[in-house]
């Protein structure tokens, strides 16, 4: 049996279906769809995706309310047990708000919503999410966000860089992010948060397939685990 994947939907998520479709294309099996108000994760989940969107209308801060929703307590425990967790866009914001990843995502420096395909440099190809990419490879992945400006203090940034935890970097300035960071890993390497949307670059009809290998990397890593 293949990996059991799950996609969490919060009120206001809007990329949950795209995420589910991407996982289905890559794994061949339809992922479980979980609701934020569920109290527990089902047994035996191998991979959890937190999708993009505007959970809770971005009230208070992007991702702040979702990070404290009932299901997230179980997601945090699963992440701490080593279950891979991918957070994209709002999912990345939720992961920082849940303290599974350091830093914070602030309003874009330009104040504008940015919606376009951007070149990213794959900085770490050793992680379970990025094993199918070439080191230093440039890939094209769409971004669509208002609050993607990654902030962390200099010590945290140095630590992230030193530990190889910057997974993706914008190839040029995008949203004001410190050191052009687009995606980071937790210390154990099983949690990835990124602003760009790999699930929107799965097949050629999307205009590119560069996101597909992220899911393939994870599924391959799970199969080999």
């Amino acid at each position: 049996m293949g990996a059991r994947c799950a996609v969490v939907t919060f009120p206001g998520s809007n990329c949950d279906r795209d995420m589910a479709v991407a996982l289905e294309k890559v794994t061949g099996a339809s992922p479980l769809r979980l609701w934020h108000g569920d109290s527990e994760l089902p047994e035996g989940i191998d991979f959890i995706a937190l999708p993009g969107g505007f959970s809770y209308g971005d009230y208070l801060r992007s991702g702040a309310m979702a990070a404290r929703s009932p299901l997230m307590a179980s997601v945090i425990k699963a992440a701490e047990r080593g279950v891979p967790v991918l957070g994209v866009c709002n999912g990345f914001q939720v992961l920082t708000e849940a303290k599974l990843l350091p830093g914070a995502l602030m309003r874009n420096a330009s104040q504008n919503f940015i919606c376009r395909t951007v070149p990213l440099i794959v900085e770490n190809t050793q992680s379970l999410f990025t094993g199918a990419y070439e080191a230093g490879e440039q890939v094209q992945i769409p971004v669509a966000h208002h609050d993607g400006n990654f902030f962390a203090d200099e010590d945290t940034l140095d630590r992230l860089e030193g530990e190889g935890r910057v997974a993706f970097r914008y190839a040029g300035p995008c949203n004001g992010s410190r050191r052009d960071i687009a995606g980071i890993l937790n210390q154990a390497g099983n949690v990835l948060g990124m602003m760009p949307h790999p699930e929107r670059a799965i097949e050629s009809d999307h205009g590119g397939e560069d996101g597909r290998r992220l899911f393939e990397s994870a599924i391959r890593a799970l199969a080999g685990a």
Binding site: L60, A64, R68, T96, E97, G103, A104, M106, F151, A152
Partner: peptide
């Protein structure tokens, strides 16, 4: 500390 402010920023 737990919700109203994000102590990172």
């Amino acid at each position: 500390r737990q919700l109203l402010a994000n102590m990172v920023i």
